[in-house]
C-alpha cells in the first residue's frame, strides 16, 4: 500500500532523476509501450544479476511465507495433530466431522456469505450513493464527507467496542433511545439478530471507505463527458449509469476487491464482541478458536482454514482471470 503513496510524493521526483543516471531525465512523457521496449534492450549483465537476486529473494519469501504455510495447512488438515504429540494420518475425517458434527461450522459459513452479500449489495452501493450526492457540491458537503469518513480511521476492533456500547441489552444506547427498557431487545445475545446488527456496525465503516474511493474517482471524471451526455438528451440517471459509471471501472475493480477481502477477513469486530460465538461465528474465528487458543486442535482447525482458503482462491481466480482477459485485449 505504500508504493502509490511514495509515487505521489512530489519530493520523490528529483531523487529519481538523480539515481537513474543512465537514463535521460524524461521531460515529456513518451508513450508507455515504446519506453518499455527501450528499457528491455538496455539490461546489462549487472542488471540481470540484480534482477535475479531481487526476483529470487521475493520468490523465496513468497514460497517460505505464503506457499509453505499454505501447503503445510493443507497437509495438517488431514491429521489430528494437537501441537504436542506425533502426527497421525486422519484421512478426511476432519472434513467429515466439520460438515456433519460441528454445529458452529455451517453457521460460520452462512455468516461469511451473509457478510459478503451485505457488504456487496447494501454497504457498497450505499457508499457509491453517498459519493454521488457529495460530488454534487451540496451545502456542507465537506462536513458530511468527514462525518462519513470518520469511522474508517477506527479499527474494526474499536468499532466492535463501540457496537457493544450501543447494542448492550441492559445498558446500551439503542434500547434507551427506542424506549425499550422494560422488555429490552437483546441485540447482541439473540443469535437470530446479532449478526445483522453487527453487520450494520461493520457497514458503518465500510460505507465511508467505499465513499471516499468513489468520490476520488468521480472527481476525475471529465465534466465534458457529462456535458456531452446532457447535450445528447440523456437524463440524470442515464448520464450516471451509461456515461459516468463505466468510466469508473478502475475504481469499481478496487472497490470490488476491497469488499471481497473485507468480507473474507472479517474477524476483529465479532472477536471484540463475543469471540465470534453464539450466532456471530465466522470461519476466521473458528480457526482461531481451534488453533490459536489452548484447544490446540491444529488438524481440525487447519481443515477449517483450508475451506476458507478454497473460498478465497475461488474469488482470486475469478478476479485474476478478469484482469488477464483485460490485459490480453
Amino acid at each position: 500500500m505504500t508504493l502509490p503513496a511514495v509515487n505521489r510524493d512530489p519530493h520523490g521526483d528529483p531523487d529519481r532523476r538523480r539515481e537513474g543516471s543512465t537514463q535521460p531525465a524524461p521531460t515529456a512523457r513518451p508513450p508507455v509501450a515504446r519506453r518499455r521496449g527501450r528499457r528491455m534492450r538496455r539490461f546489462t549483465r549487472r542488471d540481470v544479476g540484480v534482477l535475479g537476486v531481487v526476483v529470487g529473494a521475493a520468490l523465496l519469501l513468497d514460497i517460505g511465507l505464503i506457499w509453505g504455510p499454505t501447503v503445510a495447512s493443507l497437509g495438517l488438515s488431514f491429521t489430528d495433530w494437537n501441537g504436542i504429540g506425533d502426527l497421525r494420518w486422519h484421512g478426511t475425517e476432519n472434513y467429515h466431522d466439520l460438515a456433519n458434527e460441528y454445529p458452529p461450522f455451517w453457521r460460520a459459513a452462512r455468516n461469511n456469505v451473509l457478510w459478503l452479500a451485505f457488504l456487496g449489495l447494501i454497504a457498497t452501493p450505499l457508499g457509491l450513493f453517498f459519493a454521488v450526492l457529495l460530488d454534487k457540491q451540496i451545502r456542507f458537503s465537506r462536513f458530511y464527507q468527514s462525518a462519513f469518513y470518520f469511522p474508517v480511521v477506527l479499527s474494526l476492533a474499536v468499532v466492535g467496542f463501540i457496537a457493544q456500547l450501543v447494542y448492550s441489552r441492559d445498558y446500551g444506547a439503542l434500547n434507551a433511545i427506542i424506549g425499550r427498557t422494560d422488555s429490552p431487545t437483546d441485540w447482541l445475545g439473540n443469535p437470530d439478530i446479532n449478526i445483522w446488527v453487527v453487520m450494520v456496525a461493520a457497514a458503518w465503516r465500510h460505507v465511508g471507505y467505499v465513499m471516499i474511493l468513489y468520490l476520488a474517482g468521480l472527481k476525475a471524471v471529465d465534466p465534458a463527458l457529462k456535458e456531452a451526455a446532457v447535450i445528447d438528451g440523456a437524463n440524470e440517471a442515464q448520464t450516471f449509469f451509461q456515461v459516468v459509471f463505466p468510466t469508473l471501472r478502475p475504481v469499481n475493480i478496487i472497490v470490488l476487491v476491497i469488499t471481497v477481502i473485507e468480507a473474507l477477513r472479517a474477524f476483529d469486530i465479532v472477536y471484540a464482541i463475543n469471540k465470534g460465538r453464539n450466532g456471530l461465528e465466522l470461519l476466521s474465528t473458528l480457526i482461531t478458536e481451534n488453533i490459536v487458543g489452548e484447544a490446540s486442535r491444529i488438524g481440525f482447525g487447519s481443515a477449517i482454514a483450508v475451506i476458507l482458503l478454497a473460498i478465497s482462491v475461488g474469488f482470486i481466480a475469478v478476479y485474476l482471470s478478469q484482469v488477464f482477459r483485460e490485459d490480453g485485449r
Binding site: 508504493l3 509515487n7 520523490g12 529519481r16 537513474g20 512523457r29 478496487i254
Partner: peptide, 12 residues
C-alpha cells in the same frame, strides 16, 4: 493508482 511509470517503480 499504482504503477504510474516504470522508472518510479524501479526506484521504489
Amino acid at each position: 493508482p499504482a504503477g504510474v511509470s516504470p522508472a518510479s517503480v524501479s526506484i521504489d
